[in-house]
């Protein structure tokens, strides 16, 4: 309860600070729209001469694009602003002040900041997903969206955990502050169904950088094509990675010596 109150306060403060830069919001909305248009254009290039990307019909693949856009927006709104802060704190040694606060440090570091820039992406993503779902063969029932929402949440948990664990690495390697940027770039692969990749890529995107669980699996769930072991696997994967990020942070803190000491 105390944490819920804190969370609301954090977000309230962040939003208040953000509204100072209203023109940024217009920029990011424009940004999201052009990026989405580009993604759909690129996707359409794969649907020539009767080819279907990875065996996915056009509207099914469009759902993957929609889910990716939602996830991207989620990441911009909740994860990125905090991630950049962690590396900054470690570099300047101001992490000490956070450690002294009577709050769980991981909680503080993960939820302190909120950025509204991701909202256009979230809205656009939801729009595309619903549009594509209505034009699927057969059109999706509303329950499909509800069921599909569960793996989307699991994907978000997974994304958060990996991002946080990578950010934790900066405790030892201060210069690695680009690491999350590298991860972000690799995540771009999630814009397309995993079956469209060669085998070697599929292995990497399932087990090493689990992009398959973030967009393809939720889309399959919505389309009613998911194999249940994979669904269960995604839940286990998400919970384990969350637990790992928690343990890893505690472990890293033991070797934190603060800057210049």
């Amino acid at each position: 309860m105390r944490y819920l109150k804190l969370l609301l306060t954090f977000w309230h403060v962040s939003v208040a600070a953000e509204t100072e830069y209203r023109s940024n919001f217009v920029m990011s909305a424009l940004n999201s729209m052009v990026t989405l248009a580009g993604a759909i254009f690129t996707l359409s290039l794969f649907y020539q001469n009767g080819h279907q990307l990875g065996g996915w019909p056009w509207h099914d693949a469009l759902i993957v694009v929609g889910l990716f856009t939602i996830l991207d927006g989620f990441s911009q709104t909740f994860l990125t602003p905090n991630r950049t802060r962690v590396t900054e704190l470690v570099r300047q040694g101001t992490l000490d002040f956070v450690l002294l606060k009577p709050v769980d440090t991981q909680f503080w570091l993960s939820f302190r900041a909120l950025s509204l820039w991701g909202i256009p992406n979230i809205l656009l993503g939801i729009g595309i997903t619903i549009y594509a779902g209505m034009h699927c063969e057969p059109p999706l029932h509303w329950t499909a969206y509800v069921i599909g929402f569960i793996p989307v949440i699991l994907g978000m948990i997974l994304l958060y955990s990996i991002g946080f664990a990578l950010g934790t690495l900066t405790i030892w390697f201060t210069k690695l502050f680009n690491i999350t940027m590298a991860m972000q770039a690799m995540l771009e692969a999630g814009r397309f169904p995993i079956s469209a990749y060669p085998n070697a890529y599929r292995v990497i995107f399932t087990f090493i950088l689990p992009i398959a669980f973030m967009t393809t699996l939720p889309a399959q769930t919505m389309l009613g094509r998911v194999e249940w072991p994979w669904f269960a696997g995604s839940a286990i994967f998400a919970i384990c990675s969350l637990a790992f990020s928690r343990w890893f942070w505690g472990y890293a803190l033991r070797s934190y010596t603060s800057a210049s000491s």
């Binding site: 210069k175 590298a182 690799m186 469209a196």
Partner: peptide
């Protein structure tokens, strides 16, 4: 170290390489 990460951060062409290689193997482009 950072430059190595930058190489990864610009890996988009390699992702597209996988997609287009697979697509061109399955159909005519």
């Amino acid at each position: 170290g950072e430059i190595l990460l930058w190489v990864f951060a610009t890996a988009l062409p390699l992702i597209m390489l996988g997609l287009w290689y697979q697509a061109a193997s399955d159909s005519t482009f």
